[in-house]
């Protein structure tokens, strides 16, 4: 089953065309990575799928729900983690998870989500401290916990390990993998091509608002006769 179908997607900001007619599919249960340099259009694609931006032309469906017509239904089954996102600084980590969980369920259902969020974030006693006192790594773990605790059918993660040290980045990758093992689908973006090579089942290389190549890491390396995805990308955009 297809989790996401993007067809001939075009996104304009005024007279500037940020996305120039891209198409790709994300299969249910896989980790699909959009990779490319800053300004390639990765975040715009993720924001459009996450119902934040309007579509200029083309179409997007998420688990059969069409955007923007069924945006409300899509929001119930997705979870979006923006790049460099923050949490409400005057709430404790636990209060923040409670706040989010209440949008997805009441009572026991909500409490189960929070328990799962606490497990994923793994912040120990610090979960009862205000978010304002967290380090960047702690905040990111809290937000990953928030994004995955609701068991989304599709998790959209924009640069999930951006700005994290090696230890925290590895922990976040481990959480993403275990979430997919539990049945979620992940669509993520990164400009760290080596990270994506090891994390994603399939990859789309983006440049200048276009997808220049897509496939598994092995397929792309073979196609461009490259030792790694970084090299494949350089060859693909030449």
């Amino acid at each position: 089953m297809k989790a996401v179908e993007v067809r001939e997607l075009v996104k304009d900001y005024g007279s500037f065309r940020a996305i120039k007619g891209i198409s790709f599919d994300v299969k249910a249960g896989e980790i699909f990575g959009l990779i490319g340099p800053n300004g390639a259009g990765k975040t715009t694609v993720l924001r459009t799928i996450a119902t934040l931006l309007q579509i200029t032309s083309g179409s997007i469906t998420v688990f059969g729900y069409e955007l923007p017509k069924e945006a409300g239904a899509v929001r119930k089954i997705i979870s979006y983690l923006p790049e460099e996102a923050g949490a409400y600084r005057n709430l404790t980590g636990k209060e923040y998870l409670n706040f989010i969980a209440k949008f997805f369920g009441e009572g026991e259902k909500s409490q189960n989500m929070v328990r799962r969020g606490l497990e994923i974030a793994n912040l120990g006693e610090r979960i009862n401290d205000k978010v304002d006192t967290y380090s960047k790594g702690m905040t990111r773990r809290l937000l990953v916990g928030r994004a995955l605790m609701i068991d989304p059918r599709l998790a959209i993660l924009d640069e999930p390990t951006s700005g994290l040290d090696v230890i925290n980045a590895q922990e976040v990758r481990r959480i993403i993998n275990s979430s997919v093992e539990a049945g979620a689908t992940v669509l993520l973006s990164s400009h760290n091509m080596l990270e994506v090579e090891f994390l994603c089942h399939r990859i789309a290389l983006m440049d200048d608002g276009r997808i220049v190549a897509s496939g598994t890491a092995a397929e792309l390396k073979e196609e461009y006769d490259a030792r790694n995805i970084e090299e494949a990308f350089v060859k693909a955009i030449k």
Binding site: T51, L52, I78, G86, R89, F103
Partner: peptide, 18 residues
Amino acid sequence: GLEKENKTLETLLTLPVR
């Protein structure tokens, strides 16, 4: 202003709430 500065607005807008 704080929603934008703390980057919490995007999350809020993707939640299942009108």
